[in-house]
């Protein structure tokens, strides 16, 4: 398997605060890669660096073999234009903690928007595909509803369908169930499990240890902007080697 995402010494600071202090990791194509860690550990920031919503300050970050946000010619780096960054982002779907659905559009319009506006797909075809995707996340009957008329869990499933509409090769999940009522978490995790089984490469920032253990192929525990421990989810979660991992897991499990 080839590497879908490769990070080499990734650093990121917000002003004087250094959030990522040299991250090295590799996400293989087709795997479900879970990022866990206490809040403020930099896991969401790292995820946002992958589709260049944040610029990294040092190190190298590759997606599917290409540098993120830059082009290398010889030993010089050139910043990519906004339009070039936008092209790269088409292949990377992202699901946010707070859904971020477009409130002035219905579910099906939310899902159609990017294919029509970015890829130039005809409205008819885009609608057909959008309805398929809504069906896949179990919301075929909510196509005409506005986000404000949906529950949190339904909104998040529409958001997943919206990301899938661009046929991404990589999906980023930024704490997709953290803003949901406990009883709604299961529906969203079911959709993500289906997606994992279909072979999608997924990077999931999560506090759902059950999901990580069951579905995850790799797991990284991040704390203070560094990778503390990594390995197969079952090993790390049941038999953590590091003191910090142990104390974190004892609090969340």
């Amino acid at each position: 398997m080839t590497a879908m995402v490769k990070a080499e010494g990734v650093h990121k600071s917000f002003g004087p605060v250094e959030v990522l202090k040299g991250i090295d990791l590799e996400v293989k194509s087709g795997e479900v890669f879970c990022l866990i860690g206490p809040s403020g550990s930099g896991k969401s920031t790292f995820l946002r660096c992958i589709n260049h919503l944040e610029k990294i300050n040092a190190g190298r970050l590759y997606v599917d073999g290409d540098l993120v946000g830059y082009r290398q010619k010889g030993d010089k780096l050139y910043e990519l234009k906004d339009s070039e960054v936008a092209v790269k982002r088409r292949d990377i779907g992202m699901v946010f903690q707070r859904f971020n659905l477009f409130p002035h559009m219905t579910s099906v319009e939310n899902v159609m928007e990017a294919p029509v506006q970015v890829k130039g797909v005809s409205r008819g075809k885009a609608r057909e595909r959008a309805l398929e995707l809504l069906d896949r996340v179990g919301l075929a009957d909510k196509a005409g509803s506005y986000p404000s008329q949906l529950s949190g869990g339904q909104q998040q499933r529409v958001a997943i369908a919206r990301a899938l509409a661009m046929d991404p090769k990589l999906m980023l999940f930024d704490e997709p169930t953290s803003a949901l009522d406990p009883e709604l978490v299961g529906d969203v995790l079911d959709v993500m499990r289906d997606l994992a089984e279909s072979g999608m490469t997924m990077i999931v920032v999560t506090h759902e240890m059950g999901f990580a253990r069951e579905v995850g192929d790799s797991l990284v525990f991040l704390d203070g902007g560094v990778v503390v421990e990594s390995g197969h989810p079952r090993e790390v979660l049941t038999n953590p080697q590091h003191e910090r991992t142990k104390s974190f897991l004892s609090k969340v499990l």
Binding site: A86, R89, N100, F102, H104, E113, A114, V118, M166
Partner: peptide, 24 residues
């Protein structure tokens, strides 16, 4: 978050402004 979601879908600045931000 609306701008971020739109950018994450690969929409350009001007499309984001026209289709997502201004209507809201």
């Amino acid at each position: 978050g609306q701008t971020e979601a739109s950018h994450a879908l690969g929409m350009s600045h001007s499309k984001t402004l026209r289709r997502i931000v201004i209507p809201q």
